[in-house]
C-alpha cells in the first residue's frame, strides 16, 4: 500500500541529496585514491566552506560570488593543511592519517563555533521559484543544485580524463614512484589533489547551505555519510562513489517514508555493513581479478 506520490517525492529528494553527497564523496575518494589519506576532516571542510560562503554572501549579497569565493578560499586552506600537517605523514601507516585528520577536524569544528557562534546561519537561495510535485511545492533551487553538482563532477571527470594535469594525477594514483621518475612533481600533485578535494567539499557546502541552516556540527554527519559512500562504492573509485552516493541517498529517502530521518541513517549503516561483509571491494566496481 505504497502511496505513489510519496514515493516519487522521496525518489526526487534522494536523487538531489545523492548529487550533493556525490560532490563531497568524490573529493574524499580522490584524496584517498591518491594519497592513502583517510580524511576525517572532510565533513568539516564542507562545513567551513559553507560558513565562508555565508561570510562572502553577507558582504557581497551575491550567491555566486559566495560560491566562487568559498571554493577559492578552501582550496588555499586545503593546500596549507596538506603541506603542513599531512605531507610529513606520507609513507606512514594510513591509520596515522585518520588520527591527524581527526585532530584537524576538532580544530576546524571548534574554530567555526568560536568564529560564527552556535546559531545556524542561512544563505538565501539565488532561485526562489517552486513547482508543484504532487502534494509539495518543490523548490527549483534543489533541482538546480543537483544539476550544478553533476556539472562540477562532470568537469572533474573531463579534467582527469583529458587534462594534462589530470593525467598527472591518474599517473600518480597508479604508481607514485614511476610517476616521479617520469618527471611528475608528485608532492605538488598531492597538494593540488587535496586542494581540489577541499574546494569540492566547499562547493557542496555552499550549495547545500540554503536548504538547511549552516551550523558547526553539520560536518560530522557528512564525514560519516561520505565514508559510507566511499566504502560502498569502492575505496578510491570515482564512478563507484558517485553511484553509491545516489544509492545510499535513495535508500535513506525511501526509509523516511516509514521511520524518522534520525533513524533512517541506520539504513545506510546497514548497507555499509552488508557491503563490507559481502563485497568489501565495493558494490559498484568490477570484481578485481
Amino acid at each position: 500500500m505504497l502511496p505513489f506520490d510519496q514515493l516519487v517525492v522521496q525518489i526526487v529528494n534522494g536523487l538531489v541529496n545523492g548529487m550533493i553527497l556525490a560532490l563531497v564523496a568524490s573529493g574524499l575518494t580522490l584524496i584517498f585514491g591518491i594519497m592513502d589519506i583517510v580524511n576525517f576532516a572532510h565533513g568539516d571542510l564542507f562545513m567551513l566552506g559553507a560558513y565562508i560562503g555565508t561570510t562572502v554572501f553577507f558582504t557581497t549579497g551575491n550567491f555566486w560570488a559566495a560560491l566562487v569565493g568559498s571554493v577559492l578560499a578552501m582550496a588555499l586552506l586545503g593546500a596549507v593543511l596538506q603541506t603542513t600537517a599531512l605531507r610529513p605523514l606520507i609513507g606512514r601507516d594510513p591509520l596515522t592519517t585518520i588520527l591527524a585528520t581527526f585532530g584537524i577536524s576538532l580544530i576546524l569544528q571548534n574554530y567555526a563555533l568560536w568564529q560564527y557562534g552556535p546559531v545556524p546561519r542561512r544563505i538565501v537561495e539565488p532561485v526562489s521559484g517552486h513547482f508543484q510535485l504532487f502534494y509539495v511545492d518543490y523548490p527549483w533551487y534543489r533541482i538546480l543544485v543537483a544539476v550544478l553538482s553533476a556539472a562540477i563532477i562532470g568537469g572533474l571527470y573531463l579534467f582527469m580524463k583529458f587534462g594534462k594535469h589530470g593525467i598527472w594525477i591518474r599517473a600518480t594514483t597508479q604508481d607514485r614512484v614511476m610517476a616521479a621518475a617520469m618527471g611528475i612533481p608528485v608532492p605538488w600533485v598531492h597538494t593540488v589533489v587535496f586542494a581540489i578535494g577541499a574546494s569540492m567539499a566547499a562547493a557542496s557546502g555552499v550549495l547545500f547551505g540554503p536548504t538547511v541552516g549552516v551550523n558547526h556540527a553539520m560536518g560530522f554527519d557528512f564525514t560519516l555519510k561520505a565514508f559510507v559512500v566511499v566504502v560502498v562504492g569502492g575505496m578510491g573509485n570515482l564512478g563507484g562513489s558517485i553511484l553509491a552516493s545516489i544509492f545510499i541517498s535513495l535508500l535513506e529517502s525511501l526509509a523516511t517514508i516509514w521511520v524518522s530521518p534520525a533513524q533512517a541513517i541506520i539504513v545506510s549503516f546497514v548497507a555499509l555493513i552488508v557491503t563490507l561483509l559481502v563485497r568489501p571491494t565495493g558494490l559498484f566496481v568490477p570484481t578485481p581479478k
Partner: peptide
C-alpha cells in the same frame, strides 16, 4: 568552550612529531 582548538592542535602535532 573552545578548548578543543588548542587541544586538537597539540594532538595533531603529537601525531606528527611524537607518534
Amino acid at each position: 568552550e573552545y578548548y578543543l582548538i588548542p587541544v586538537g592542535l597539540i594532538f595533531t602535532l603529537m601525531v606528527i612529531f611524537v607518534p
